[in-house]
Simulated assay, not measured.
Amino acid sequence: MIMKSRIVTTTLLVFCSFIACFAAIAGLNGKWTGSVKITPEDELSLVYNFKVDGDKLSGTVQSPDGNDLPIAEGVLSGNEFAFIVKAGKLVVNHTGKYYGDSVIVSAYVDGKSFKAVLKRDK
């Protein structure tokens, strides 16, 4: 009887943890903005529009010329995510972490890494 109670309790806790993770990361949906320093003199504005569907991430990233580039191969795991964006022949790998009120995104391109803090656009 005690063993059965422990199994039921453990199962419920695991199930609730999964539900909480999916509910939390669903908060990533929407428009996020920020900026990143490319050089000490140059700063680039960033606009990400995220769409969460289960453990898949899609959406767009706004290019410097204002065009929306699609997010590809987007995956979610807990509050972390990864995706790529293709701009012509250039492939930009992204990783990130969702914190509820902010998102930290790292982009890797041409052997360089850039990190930015994004805030939900109001």
Rank of each mutant, 00 (worst) to 15 (best):
Y48D: 01
T95K: 10
A107V: 02
D110V: 11
R120N: 09
S63E: 03
N67Q: 08
G74R: 00
A116Q: 13
K97I: 10
D110N: 14
G96E: 01
K31G: 08
N29C: 02
V92A: 11
T60A: 13
F114K: 04
K119D: 05
D68A: 15
I104V: 13
K122A: 10
S45C: 04
D121M: 05
V109L: 08
D53Y: 00
S102N: 11
E80R: 11
D110R: 15
G78Q: 08
C21R: 08
Y99K: 05
Y99M: 07
H94Q: 06
M3R: 14
F15N: 01
K122Y: 02
K119I: 05
L76E: 09
G74T: 03
I38E: 12
L13K: 12
S77W: 09
K89A: 13
V8S: 13
F83I: 06
N67K: 07
S113T: 15
I104H: 03
T11G: 13
K31M: 09
I71P: 00
L57C: 06
G88H: 03
A24D: 06
W32I: 05
V91A: 11
S5N: 03
S35K: 07
V91E: 13
T11Y: 10
S106C: 10
A107L: 04
K4W: 12
F22T: 08
S63H: 08
K122Q: 06
S58W: 08
F15R: 01
Y48V: 02
S45P: 12
V14N: 04
G54P: 01
N93A: 11
F81G: 03
G78S: 10
T33I: 15
Y99N: 05
K31E: 15
P70R: 00
L12H: 02
V61H: 13
S113H: 10
T60E: 11
K115W: 09
A24W: 14
P70Y: 00
L13I: 13
L90R: 06
L76R: 13
D101F: 11
F114V: 03
S5C: 06
L44M: 15
V103M: 05
L90A: 13
G27P: 01
G34Q: 10
W32P: 01
T60D: 14
N93P: 04
S77H: 13
N29S: 03
Y108Q: 12
N49R: 13
D110Q: 14
D110P: 02
S5Q: 05
D65L: 08
S77R: 12
H94T: 00
G66I: 09
A72I: 14
A87F: 03
S17N: 14
V105H: 02
S58T: 14
S17G: 14
T60N: 12
A87L: 07
K112M: 04
G34M: 09
P40E: 15
